Simulated scan of single mutants.
Amino acid sequence: MATLINELKVTGSVEDFERITAEITAYMRQQPGYVSHRMLRSLRRPGVFVEIAEWEKPEDHVRAVQSEGFRTRVQQLAGVIEKPAPDLYEPAHA
């Protein structure tokens, strides 16, 4: 299992951000190895979101984000968020 954790700082319209990320999530749900996705919004900083996505294997996520379908959709976030810094994690303790 691989878990993507990505903090996203919205600098544009939150409504645009939510619409675009919903489209991206719908696309990713169709990709091999996709398990789940959650988007959390900070109560203290309402323009900050944390994305948590689980994949069967790290390679599944890498393949999905390298796809043309993902790249086309994620480009729409330019000007809506600061540059994200996603990273994949694996379980360290049971």
Rank of each mutant, 00 (worst) to 15 (best):
T3Q: 05
L4C: 02
N6Q: 07
N6H: 05
L8N: 04
K9P: 04
S13T: 03
S13P: 03
E15Q: 15
E15S: 14
R19E: 10
R19K: 14
R19N: 08
R19C: 09
I24C: 08
T25H: 12
A26F: 00
A26Q: 15
Y27F: 15
Y27S: 06
R29Q: 13
Q31E: 07
P32E: 02
P32I: 02
Y34S: 13
Y34I: 10
H37D: 02
H37G: 01
R38I: 03
R38N: 09
R41A: 08
R41W: 02
S42L: 01
R44T: 13
R45Q: 10
R45M: 08
R45G: 00
R45F: 12
P46C: 05
G47S: 07
G47V: 02
V50M: 14
E51C: 13
E56G: 13
K57M: 10
K57W: 05
P58R: 11
P58D: 09
E59H: 04
E59G: 05
D60L: 04
V62Y: 05
A64Q: 01
A64K: 06
V65N: 00
V65R: 06
E68F: 08
G69F: 05
R73Y: 04
R73W: 04
V74Y: 09
Q75H: 12
L77I: 03
A78H: 10
A78V: 10
G79P: 14
V80M: 08
K83V: 10
K83N: 10
P84Q: 00
P86A: 02
P86G: 02
P86F: 03
D87W: 07
Y89I: 03
Y89P: 00
P91L: 13
A92Y: 12
A92R: 12
A92F: 14
H93R: 11
H93E: 05
